[in-house]
Design a protein around this nucleic acid. Structure first.
Lengths: 357, 357
DNA sequence: CTGTTAGCGCGTTCAT
DNA sequence: ATGAACGCGCTAACAG
């Protein structure tokens, strides 16, 4: 008969190993085992000898504590929720990545929820995350500009807080919560100003769904700046690009088709800008930036690789995620805090002086 | 005194509301409340009248069940884990998005873990996911080609299964598990073949860390095809682009610097291809595809927006995620299954006939 | 159909 | 320093 390997895991009982089993194998009570494994009160009040026996037993049995049971007993967990519109969107992917980096450093697990822009789903996930006793939730998706929805969201958020949770919002969600606020208005104004300074006077805006507060804020920033410059925006100058590449491509075609087509395009995010550049280049045969200048928004990783490299408004995406995460680590405060995140113009090659008429 | 609004949520007790409280408010036992809310045995065996009272009470109190407690009682959860290298990488973002779509349809919650390519972290997350009693885990990151590591991973995966969990691997991880297997070898061969057919005879490969099985598989596929074509690869023709844009940009410079520089570049993923195109265009002043042809791998969303639009090997990324998720829904089988996912050449504008010498 | 009872696995008093 | 006992909130038998 073969000699058992010294450190071979002992025959594991069927199903998950429990603390009790570890305790038995170590010849101690489950209380001692618990203390040895998690040193509850800061000090490890378990004797060296027993401690070692417990640790060995746990390792041999490949024991991992039952997190749900632990959560029930401690009435707290180490999971945080992050809700986004769509992970495949580089904007959210970057924010999520930032958040996850911090989570890792602090031993937190993250539940990622994607709403695909459905407000109902946002509410739903918030409730489910509350059920999970996620200690905090980051609402990373844009807020929805709907009165009734906002009321319901606020109610859910209140319930979340009442249950001891912590909610952090990215952008305007119309609720009283800690928030990380990207400079959407100022950023859009920056874009307009940049184009204006280059001599452009005929502007076009490729926007997104008006139902999103991010869209409204950016649009508003552009509109104000334009008005301040004496170039008030007319309805025909704004088209909805749906915040997606394909829709934006189509939208760009209609925008550039009129009699006095714009020479300057402010596109409310980079994903759409990719579609707009494609439309200009492949559908309309217009040269960027010679005939038309384009400014994007976000500065997602691929912005510099577009054709031409995209001038855009940079938002420190990963930072937004880390900042939100840090608010979680700090814990909730009596009055909501808000961290402002600046936007910055990144000049690349999609903008140039306005063509002479 | 103000009349209370009819449907105003009743004054909620401090902290989370429990089933017990809902039951009391409805004047029933907690068992009945549980049945009314979760209709255990398929059939709703609770009388209309009581059922309604319970539902009302729950709504008024904004009750959500305590998931950890439920998990403990039922000894099962509705969370699945997805471990990736980095969410900000469009390859993983797309896979995760595919998985999350299915998760949503089936009421599953996903815990996303990012290892940042650290094998230890992968092991760690797997154990933590086991602790969470995640019903299944999708190992979406590339496997690591390390004997010792693989042994440990297999042990963890076994423990996971022994605990009633289900593990799904994407690509080669060297463990006996259900796997979704992308055609990495065949895909790379396709890339080589495409370039060969265009008349190219001097090849260069921008590879990634040899420690990743994905890299090895793709490299192997290219190497075999090249050998079959009578053009065996020499060490100098392969450089490590680190699977990142920046490293690949640098790597491309060294690759193109030799005496008989390649006219055809096979880049082992699209993210690196973006860096390679930048190097060619901005650092080396070489025209693509006139002087050098480039083929990428993966067909991430931005591939078509690069300059020039990238010819690449498409992997149905979202599909990979959904397929993996579907294996979870099906549940584990006695013997591991494997689903093959085909790669396909997507000709765009970064490849052209070899320049005449 | 509904209520009572007994765990699920763990942390945490309270004794010792 | 260690063990015994109780409770966290919920589901699952088991009665009635």
């Amino acid at each position: 008969m073969p000699t058992p390997t010294p450190d071979a895991p002992a025959a594991r009982p069927a199903g998950p190993v429990t603390l009790q089993q570890v305790a038995e194998r170590a010849g101690v009570s489950s209380a001692t085992a618990s203390r040895a494994l998690h040193g509850s009160s800061g000090t490890r009040i378990v004797g060296e000898e027993l401690r070692k026996r417990v640790l060995d037993a746990a390792r041999e049995l490949r024991y991992v504590s039952n997190a749900p049971a632990q959560a029930l007993a401690r009435s707290t967990t180490s999971v945080v929720g992050v809700v986004v519109h769509d992970v495949a969107d580089p904007y959210f992917a970057a924010i999520a990545a930032g958040a996850m980096g911090v989570a890792r450093e602090h031993g937190l697990l993250v539940m990622l929820a994607a709403t695909f822009r459905d407000p109902e789903l946002e509410l739903d996930y918030l409730a489910r995350l509350r059920a999970q006793r996620a200690r905090a939730v980051i609402l990373a998706g844009s807020g929805f500009a709907d009165r009734e929805f906002t009321r319901r969201l606020a109610a859910e958020a209140d319930a979340y807080r009442a249950d001891g949770g912590h909610v952090i919002a990215v952008g305007s969600h119309g609720i009283a919560a800690d928030t990380v606020r990207p400079a959407n208005r100022a950023g859009a104004a920056l874009a307009v100003r940049h184009l204006y300074d280059l001599g452009h006077r005929r502007f076009g805006i490729v926007s997104g769904p008006r139902s999103l507060t991010t869209v409204r804020d950016r649009l508003d920033g552009a509109r104000r700046q334009l008005r301040a410059l004496g170039l008030p925006l007319t309805p025909g100058q704004v088209v909805d690009g749906g915040f997606t590449r394909e829709q934006a491509r189509t939208a760009a075609r209609t925008l550039l088709t009129g009699p006095s087509a714009p020479t300057a395009l402010v596109v409310l995010n980079d994903v759409m800008a990719a579609g707009v550049l494609a439309a200009l280049r492949e559908d309309l045969g217009l040269r960027v930036p010679d005939q038309v200048s384009v400014v994007g928004f976000d500065d997602v990783p691929f912005a510099a690789d577009l054709n031409p490299p995209l001038t855009t408004i940079r938002l420190p995406l990963a930072d937004i995620g880390t900042q939100a995460m840090h608010m979680i680590l700090t814990g909730p405060t009596v009055t909501p805090r808000t961290v402002d995140v600046d936007a910055e113009l990144v000049p690349r090659s999609s903008t140039a002086p306005a063509p002479q008429p």
